[in-house]
Design a binder for these strands. Structure first.
Lengths: 205, 205
DNA sequence: GCACTAATAACCGAATCGGTCAAGAGGTTG
DNA sequence: CAACCTCTTGACCGATTCGGTTATTAGTGC
């Protein structure tokens, strides 16, 4: 593991991305070390040199993702946004920006939730716990609903936006190109349209 | 293949579902005949008895899904719906009802779009062509926009609904339980809320 | 030229791959 | 009962791939 840390950052991220992609795409058991080595353009032996075993590599990735998530979650930036739509937009932007440089984390994280291999089952909590925390803080607040023409619509609209975010993620999962800026632009426009039609006149700035 | 058709319908669907699930989950190369045999509670040899080879089985599934899609696509039922939201709701209902009895078709179809194995690459069109046709007919029509308070919102709202449908699919992909009725109920409520807030008063019957 | 290090080609036994086949198990005829 | 037929599968095939190891190489500083 210290052997791995001695590498240049570029080489490290190449290897981590390859591993995240393979595990994310195939799951723990079906992803082979050879798959990862080929994707990272290094030899299979090097992977074992760096991480010792397949299981150690997987656990390293879980902890790596946990740290990344902790890093991007800026509670203050979110709390300062008092408006529901602004808050969703801000958190999405934060998320997207970080995934722009870490393109395979998203599918890896979602694959962890479906992982069933007994080899790593008891290690999954490293990540699942953290992602839960992340989601729980992006929450609908009581006074958000008051801005709606029909306050009872606030909950469903919030759920719809979460659903749409999952739709975006699903649409581009596995795709080799992902134009983040276009997606965010699209999402921003959708949010603007929803706000315009659901908010009372007085809250349309 | 006639050996397979001689089986009882129950046994046939068990085997097909197992195969759809494995190929859908792992992709062509990573899914093994043994995986499928275990999931179907039959022996590996039987799979070869029924289908001859792994490739033949995969192609059989492609054609099987094609037929199912052709079957559920009821053009008349859609054309008779003049309202955008009604049309989306109707097509979603048709889709959901059929997937209720064919729970693994959805993830199999979406996996086909990501398939890259050269063994089956030239056979994928069997299904991809058909699913394209299916989607192209669920289209936004010119006069739909006229019912909107802001006609330019019609396109984005339509896209949002498609996105949400993908979100639902993604959320329950791989999950072993999927309460179709609850999901449809949820979707219906969302559609009603959107309609209420986006349509001109005069179109809210 | 020499020592040290980092990367990998070659290799290991074990497991699994797609695919085959002959030995049953079970049922139907005489 | 014997003879026959159909269907299922355990056991097996050679080939490949698995996770993991090791011995050799290529590069670097002195």
């Amino acid at each position: 593991m210290d052997k791995f840390l001695a590498l240049t950052e570029e080489k490290r991220t190449t290897i981590l991305n390859a591993a995240l992609q393979c595990f994310g795409k195939f799951g723990y058991e079906k992803a082979s070390i050879n798959d990862i080595a080929v994707a990272a353009h290094i030899s299979k032996a090097s992977v074992f040199q760096y991480f010792g075993s397949k299981k150690h590599l997987y656990i390293y990735l879980l902890e790596y993702c946990k740290k990344i998530i902790e890093g991007i979650f800026d509670k203050e930036a979110l709390d300062s946004q008092t408006d529901l739509f602004d808050r969703i937009m801000t958190s999405s932007k934060i998320e997207m920006e970080s995934f722009k440089t870490q393109p395979f984390i998203l599918q890896f994280i979602s694959s962890v939730w479906e992982e069933t291999s007994p080899d790593v089952l008891d290690s999954l909590a490293i990540l699942t716990e953290e992602t839960c925390k992340f989601r729980n803080d992006m929450i609908l607040r009581e006074d958000d609903a008051l801005k709606f023409k029909n306050p009872e619509d606030a909950g469903p609209v919030f759920q719809m936006l979460l659903l749409m975010a999952e739709g975006y993620a699903a649409r581009y999962r596995g795709a080799d190109t992902f134009d983040f800026d276009t997606v965010m632009d699209d999402f921003q426009k959708n949010i603007a349209i929803l706000r315009k039609n659901f908010y009372k006149e007085e809250y349309l700035k």
